[in-house]
Each structure stands twice: as structure tokens, then as C-alpha cells.
Design a binder for these strands. Structure first.
Lengths: 196, 196, 196, 196
DNA sequence: CGGTAATCGAGACGGTACGTCTTGTCTTGTG
DNA sequence: CACAAGACAAGACGTACCGTCTCGATTACCG
């Protein structure tokens, strides 16, 4: 019967990892990233601040980069895309600016890029997390809008580059303060470029 | 006696710095950045590979970040801007993609960002070098084009964000191979957004 | 009924410790001591090799030193002393050389000494086990022999030092191979020194 | 001329190692060995106490065992042997008791034995330092005394075993306090055994 | 026969030491 | 002076072991 061949039972014997430690470490990592930046956010410092031992951290994450990666880029859960193409572009612009506007993300990105330089798998995971989902959703919407005749046939990837890159540049390099306005400006410029 | 009361003589005693060392170090740094990335490009490794002593490096640059900064972002010498606004935008798009396409620059940027996090002066210097000149030139051309009636009145900073950020994203994140085509696509999308 | 008001009953409920584990651990410890020495004989390694869990070991012995102590120096059961003084000295010399000749003992001694440095109780226990019984027995025999006139009045402790220390040195430091001969030589030298 | 082809000049460029550091580390190591024993004498603790960095220690000694070895068993410089055989044995007994009586040596020996277990070269060096020289000197004196007819033909190695081992046992195991008396007792017993 | 208590494995935990590495400074001769 | 060679303090890195602990699962005795 169902019970028999159902759940493989997973045999989780022995103490479980204390989830409070995961939480404390991630929260501490976020705080320290903001306060001190990537370089000064030592594993030692994280451990001490979180009241946790260093091995407890290494048991969970194989490196500082992995830890920061998980601390800074939590799974966003797929946001519901807008039906209207213009609304979707606007949503993405705002979302990108909001994401890059998070000080944790801002501090984490370059550090993670440096440390994961030769870890192809992690780099892919990072870019997936940051934008791959949005990229493919956007492509679909664009196709539909082109079919409808509301959008011109531009390269979807270039469109995504412009949205994400423009947001990143505004927030991280130019350091705009008024993110609402920046989101509007960006969306407007991009939409002018793509709408018919 | 002439010598006695003659010119203050400036007392340039001792050996001059050997300019060959500057060159060797900068070239080695560029090579290592490409081959191994920022983190693995140790000052020690640079010194050994360049056949130079570590103090000779620290005599010239105050830190690894400064050295990489100079090695990766040489002064470009102001490129002559195009007179036509559309041509200028196109030139900037191509230029940005070419710059970010340089593997040295790609490896250097995140590392320098991490290490210079709290060095406000250097960060400013970096962004100046990368785009400030272009930004102001672009603003002038845009004003003129708006006056002529060929361009719409968009925010010049947002325009620059989109060009530089779009290029950065295409090259560094999406890792496009065909940079010529990417430049064209980017320029086209941007121009559609801004031209009347 | 005797049972009722007798022993406080100790309430021995639940499973008993598996004596096979004791044996397996002790045997494994001995093997590992010989093969790898004290430092490399990790509790983890013992547990894994013996097919036993770490807590099962700590339930039985409070520390690695205690475990090694029991593994290496099993209770010898009091050997019957010889009646003749000369025969007794000879017996002790042979016994000491045999004991220190055991590779397990040789590996264990320094390790236990280091780890039990500040455990006065255990150190005493160790020396008791190794030689205290023999020391007092020897003192008695020596007294008798002095009374009989067959031995000279030497310090019994010094005599024991010479026997045990000489044996230890021959076996552990000089690493003699022919233990029989070493025992004879030692006994002869000692007896010449003490017999009248 | 001699000077020309003499010394290979050794080309010692760069800073010399600071001999004050060697001294401070060795002295600190000796103090800590006495106060805390081998196990608690951490490299970290030595470094901190001596006011020295850890790498500075590892630059000089490859391991804790090597450092302790050098700290505890300094080269004794060959003591002048006595001409008279009996006097020589007495000198050796006293010397052995004095050496093993040094608390530094007492703490160091077991630790070094454990850690250098598989380093054949170091073990040999250790035993050489502790007794090999004395052993061969003693053998010569014994031969001469046998020729003279003052000593009986006993095994020289066994004789050395008895002296060194007896001293070690008296001091390290039995923990005699009155070392002068212990030296006399040991010498007397040994001499009775070997003199004709 | 069902409850109770001790065992067992597995393995996480805090703590601590290890030995290595890198950074940026300082020192010592040589040219 | 600049330079090479290299020692130095500071401190992070990642690994290893220790002895303790918490889990579930498994016995065995006891009422």
C-alpha cells in the first residue's frame, strides 16, 4: 500500500543542524556587509559577532563567497509578471533598481565576483538568481508585444541588458538617491526605445 | 669657485627609479589578471614574475588596488567626440563595449571596487576615468540635439547609465562574443529611445 | 528474603553496555598505537576502525589518555615473587624489559605522560600499575637478603630505579633487539652491584 | 691567495633574522614548558608571550616539536671526561640526574617523543644529544679500566643504560627531591656492579 | 506485555590549535 | 639614492581534533 513504497524515510539520524545558527549567521553577514564592506567581513568576524564557532559556518557554506551569496541574494520567489508589456518593462526597471539599491547586494556583488571567478557553476547560479528568470519572461512578453504590433522587433537580450545594466549603473556607480525617479526615467527611456 | 655659489643644483643624488620596472610590473599585472583573476594576482606573484622586488612595487603604488587600477585603466586620452549626436551615441556604445570587453578591465573592476570600498577619493578617480568625461560630453551633445529638435529631452545621466550599464551587462554578465553586433544593437535601442 | 533488604538494588533497568564494544575498542587502540603512534591515534579513528560510535567510547573512558592507559597497561595480575633474592631481581629485570619491549607500551607512555600532566591521580595510578607493587615487593626481599647477609644494604628505591630505568633505556632508547640477552646483562650488572 | 678562492661568500642580502627573536622565543618556550607543560605550550601562546608573530616562529622551526627540542636540549658542549674510571662513572651519574632534573627537559621529553614519532632523523638527533657522546666516551674509559684490571668486563651499553635509565627513573618517575643524594646512591650502586 | 531506562549509531556543536598565506612595512647590504 | 632580498607584525584562511550534546532507533529488564 501507499505507505510501503512511499516516502524513502530519509533516515535523518543524529542531531539536526540548529536552524537558529543559519539565521544568525546570515543576518550577521548582511549587517557586516553593510557596515564594513566585503573585504572586512571576515569569517572570523561573522562567527564572533553571530556568537557561533567558525567550524559551524564552514559546515554550512564552503567559502565566504558562498555564504555571502546566500546572505545577499535570497531566492526572490518568482514575481508575478505584468500582462501589459509596458507595465512589465516598468516593473522590471523598478525591480532592478530596488534590488541593486539594497546595500547588501551592492557590497556583495563585486566580492562574490572576485572570489567565485573560477567557479563556473556558482557564477551561473548567481546570474540565474539575479536575472535569468526575468530575462526569459521578458523575452516572452516582448514576442507577444511584437506580434500585437505594440513593440518593435528589438533583441530581447539587449533590452534586458539595458534595463539591468542601466539600473545597476544608476544605483551603484552614479549613486542616485531618488530611486523612484530613477526607475521612472529608466523605464521611460527604455520604453521609448522599444515601443512602436 | 663655480661650484660653491652656483645653482642650487637640486641635489639629485643617487639612482633614479628605473622606468623599466614600472613597465614590467604593469605588464605583468595585466597578464596575471587575465590568467588568474584578481584574487590570485598576488603582489608577491607580480614581483616574482616581473623579476622585481616587492618593495620596488610598494615604492611606486601604495596598494594592490592602486596598482591594478593603474594597470587596468590607463588614461585613455580624450577621444575626439563626434559632432553628430547620433554618431556620438553610437561611438559611446562601441567604446563602452570595447572597454568592458577588455579582459583586464573585466577582472580588475570588482577587485578594485572591493579593495577601495572605503577610499572615497580613489572610487571617484575610478569612475571619472571610466566615464565622467564621456558623461559630460554626452550631456553637451544632448543639449545641442534637443535645441536642434533632433532629440527628445531625456535625462542625460539616465542616458549615460543606459549606455554604460547596458554595455557592461552585455559584456560582463551575458558575456556576448560578437561585440560588434552588440554595439550596434545597443546603439540602435538607445537611439530609438532618445531620438525624436 | 535476602534480596529484598539487601543491596540498594541499583535499579539496573534498560540495556547493558555491550562488552564486545569494550573489547573492540581496546584492541583497535592497541593496533593503532603500534601502527601510527599516539598522536595519530585519534578517537575518531579508533571509533571508525572499531566500527563504533564516538559517544560509545566516551561513555566508557573520559578521555583519550584514559583509554590508552587502559589499553596499554592492563592489570598484570600480581606475579608470584621468587623466594630467592637473586632470582627475584632477575625476574624483575626480565619483566621490565618484557613490559617496555611491548610496542604498545612504548608508544603509549609518552603520550599518556603528556596528556595526564596535570592529573595527579592518574599519574599515580600509572606509576602504581607500572612498578609500585614490584617496588615494595623488592624492598621486602632486599631487607630479608640483607638480614641473611647475602645482600649489601643499598637503597631499595635506587635499586628499583636502576632495574626499571635500565630496562626502559635499553628497550626504548637504545632499541635493543635481543631482549633475552639484555635481560641477562642487566640482571648480572645489577646483581654484582647489590650482592655481597 | 687564500682569500680569493676561500669562503663562497654566501651572498647574505636582505635583513638578517633578528637574533633577539630566537632568544625570546626559546626563553619563553622554556618558561611555558615548566609552567604549563608540553600540551598547553601552544605556538600561539609562545608567540604572544614572546611578543613575536607566529610566522616568525615557523620561519625558524618547522614544528612545535623542533622548537621544543632546541629549547630544551641545548648543545651541552662536550664536558671534559674524568681520567679515573670511577670518577667518570660518578660524573655521568650526577650529570644524568642533573639533566633529567631540569624541569624543562622533563616536560619536553615525552612531548618530543610523541610528536617526532615518525621523524627518524630527529629522534636520532635527540638521542645523540642526550647521551650518544657520553655513551662512547664511557665505552673507552671502561675498556681502559678493564685492561688495567680495575673494572670487570661488562657490556658498556648496559652500563650506560643503567646510569641514564636509573637517573631518569629516579628523577622523572620517583621524583626524588634530594638530587645530590640520588646521584651518590646511583653512582655507588653502579660502581659496585662494575668495579672489580 | 507494556513501560522505562539505558544503550547504540550518527553527527552537529563550541572551542581551540594548527600551519599556511597575503599584505604592507622595515632593514640590510650592494651598486 | 634605488634596488634585491628577505624578515617582520598582523591577522585571515581552512582543517583537524577534542569532548559534549542531542537526536531517533533499539534493546532489555521490571512491574
Amino acid at each position: 500500500m501507499a505507505d510501503v513504497d512511499a516516502a524513502p524515510r530519509h533516515r535523518r539520524q543524529g542531531s539536526r543542524r540548529d536552524p537558529a545558527i543559519d539565521e544568525a549567521v546570515l543576518a550577521t553577514t548582511r549587517t557586516l556587509l553593510i557596515e564594513r564592506g566585503y573585504a572586512a567581513t571576515t569569517i572570523d568576524l561573522i562567527a564572533a559577532t553571530a556568537g557561533v564557532s567558525r567550524p559551524a559556518i564552514y559546515r554550512r557554506w564552503t567559502s565566504k563567497a558562498q555564504l555571502v551569496h546566500e546572505a545577499a541574494f535570497p531566492d526572490l520567489g518568482p514575481e508575478a509578471p505584468e500582462n501589459d508589456f509596458a507595465a512589465e518593462v516598468t516593473r522590471l526597471c523598478r525591480g532592478a533598481i530596488r534590488m541593486y539599491g539594497d546595500p547588501v547586494v551592492r557590497e556583495a556583488i563585486p566580492g562574490v565576483l572576485v572570489d567565485l571567478r573560477s567557479d563556473r557553476r556558482m557564477r551561473r547560479l548567481l546570474s540565474d538568481r539575479l536575472e535569468a528568470a526575468a530575462r526569459s519572461q521578458l523575452a516572452e512578453r516582448l514576442d507577444a508585444a511584437v506580434d500585437e504590433g505594440t513593440a518593435r522587433a528589438v533583441d530581447a537580450d539587449t533590452l534586458m541588458d539595458v534595463i539591468a545594466g542601466g539600473a545597476w549603473y544608476a544605483v551603484c556607480v552614479r549613486r542616485v538617491k531618488d530611486t523612484d525617479r530613477a526607475g521612472r526615467d529608466l523605464a521611460e527611456l527604455v520604453l521609448r526605445g522599444v515601443l512602436r
